[in-house]
Amino acid sequence: MTEVKIVEDCAATAETAFAYVNDYRNLPRFISEIHEFTPVTDQIEGVGATFDGTIRLGPATLHSTIRVVRWEENVAIAVKSIKGFEIESTFLFHGKDDNQCTVDAIVEYRVGGGIAGRVLGKTIEPFVKIAVKHSTHNLTTQIAEFQASRQG
């Protein structure tokens, strides 16, 4: 698997950051490459919640069904694909003080074998790195705004 990890500080508590990421409706707001993201189960949070998603990375459009595989309130949310494009994403939230946390965004993905897989991997790799960095910046900015709206 190829891993991309971005760590960024955020002007919000770990609790606020977790709450923002935990609401699946916010995902397309901070990951602009996501074009569809819908629940396929009645459960929409916690381990076992399952979603269908479509993401565009450069010239490639990739579909996955993902399931929440780790959910520790105010600490971590991780998803793993169970169908389609193989991806694992983890968000970790580390509290620093009353108004600061650090968010780790870790994305691991695997493309199929053979020539087609290698070509796809080389095609999407730069887009994945840019998307994760851009998404993490969007996320921390939106979390800080979310925290300010909760306080005001």
Results as ranks from 00 to 15, higher is better:
N26M: 02
R29E: 15
T90Y: 08
G48P: 11
R118D: 08
A78V: 01
L27C: 09
S32T: 02
L139G: 02
W71I: 05
T54L: 10
T13S: 13
N74W: 08
I31G: 06
D98F: 14
V103W: 06
M1T: 08
A12W: 06
L92T: 05
V111I: 07
I82D: 07
I55T: 09
R118G: 10
V68N: 11
R67M: 13
V7Q: 12
G152A: 06
V75H: 11
A116N: 13
E36H: 04
T141C: 15
I143G: 02
V79T: 02
N74E: 09
E8H: 05
Y20T: 02
F146E: 07
L92C: 11
A11T: 11
T16L: 15
G48V: 07
S81D: 12
G46E: 01
T38M: 15
E86N: 01
C101S: 11
R70Q: 15
I66R: 04
S149R: 09
T38I: 12
E145K: 10
G95N: 08
T54S: 03
V69I: 09
A11L: 15
H35E: 15
G117V: 00
L139H: 01
K5E: 14
F37I: 03
E15N: 14
V132I: 14
I55Q: 02
D98C: 09
F93T: 04
S81T: 03
G84I: 03
V103Y: 01
A19I: 04
V21G: 08
P126I: 00
I143K: 00
E108A: 07
T102C: 09
K129M: 04
I124G: 00
H94E: 15
D104V: 15
P59Y: 05
V40I: 10
K83L: 14
V7S: 11
E36A: 10
E8I: 07
A116T: 00
T141P: 13
I87H: 00
P39A: 08
I77W: 00
A76H: 06
E88D: 01
V47M: 09
G48A: 11
I6R: 15
S81A: 12
C10A: 03
Q100D: 09
V21W: 09
T123R: 04
S81R: 06
T13V: 14
A76M: 13
Q151I: 04
I82M: 07
V75I: 14
T38H: 05
S64D: 03
T65G: 04
K122Q: 14
E45T: 00
V68D: 04
T140N: 07
N22Y: 10
E15D: 15
R29K: 10
A11G: 14
G58W: 03
E125F: 03
F93P: 14
G84V: 03
E36R: 05
A116P: 10
I55R: 02
E45K: 00
T61W: 12
E108H: 08
V21M: 08
E125C: 03
T140Y: 02
K80S: 07
A116F: 04
A12L: 13
L27N: 03
Y20Q: 08
I106G: 10
T41H: 06
